[in-house]
Design a protein around this nucleic acid. Structure first.
Lengths: 150, 150
DNA sequence: TATATTTGTATCGTGCACGATATAAACGGA
DNA sequence: TCCGTTTATATCGTGCACGATACAAATATA
């Protein structure tokens, strides 16, 4: 099969590829800031969900972050080992594990609150207007909702 | 710290989070089609690079896909084990490993060429116009280039 | 009230990602 | 030519992701 016949397979014509690569590169921008808090990016997302919505089950966190419980269970155990969260079986439903923040987990928020601005700053030379960024973000969330079936 | 004080930490105000989640969800859409070819999504990307640009070194593939060699080396070994590629030390520079397609790897292209249309079809009810998708893709690639420093 | 089904979480195995580090080949001077 | 530096790849350890599966608690149904 000749190359000229298959532009649909060119890297520059893919949609998922730049999404996948950009996602990884942006995560890398977070890394040094998250290292200071001794957490990873997925752990940071879990903490965002807890800071915003307080106590919730593993499945609820998974629905917010579009992650399966088989990803979350070990991740949550690591956060628990760090002393940032608690995992307690619900009294009313013994199947459910309620995840809640410890004092240390609550306190970490005051450090995390500095991060978004630092990320924005590192985007300042990304040759993107704020308007363009907002449109982009809107598209992403609408895609996410459609694909996630939420 | 009260919730009202920290909208910058709300999930719906993040940029990287929807990028990260959407990337994973779209990869999942590829999975059944890639399963038929017995390859993973990152392996598919490597093959795209090879189908488009022919023989190249590990580092060249990494530059195109924004992946490190420590990710690629084991992935390439798996593709070699499947009989889809060859890994040969360059004669002129013994440090360089040249990756090239086998006959089976070349032949797989005729199956892969069906995939992009299938992906587009599964996006048809994503409530996004083609124009919107193209703008979105452009933004992604420009972000990628800026962040990747290419 | 037994039994079947659903639900919530966990376990297991495989394959990425990636920082840190190693190693050998190539290259660049003094 | 010797040696320090760079370059290309590889190894190692940790932490996701996720499909497949397990399992017990809860719920539904006969």
């Amino acid at each position: 099969m000749k190359k000229e016949e298959t532009p649909s397979l060119f890297l520059e014509n893919q949609l998922c590829f730049p999404l996948y690569a950009t996602s990884r590169l942006i995560t890398k921008i977070y890394t040094p800031y998250l290292n200071e808090l001794d957490i990873t990016y997925p752990q940071y997302l879990v903490l965002l969900a807890l800071w915003q919505f307080n106590d919730q089950s593993v499945t609820e966190i998974g629905q917010r972050l579009y992650l399966e419980t088989n990803t979350l269970t070990p991740l949550l155990k690591r956060l628990e080992a760090k002393g940032l969260i608690r995992r307690t079986r619900s009294k009313s439903d013994e199947r459910t594990v309620v995840v809640s923040l410890t004092k240390a987990g609550e306190d970490l928020k005051s450090k995390a609150v500095e991060i978004p601005q630092k990320i924005i700053d590192s985007f300042s030379h990304a040759s993107m207007s704020e308007e363009e960024l907002i449109t982009f973000q809107k598209t992403l969330f609408s895609l996410l909702k459609t694909l996630g079936g939420r």
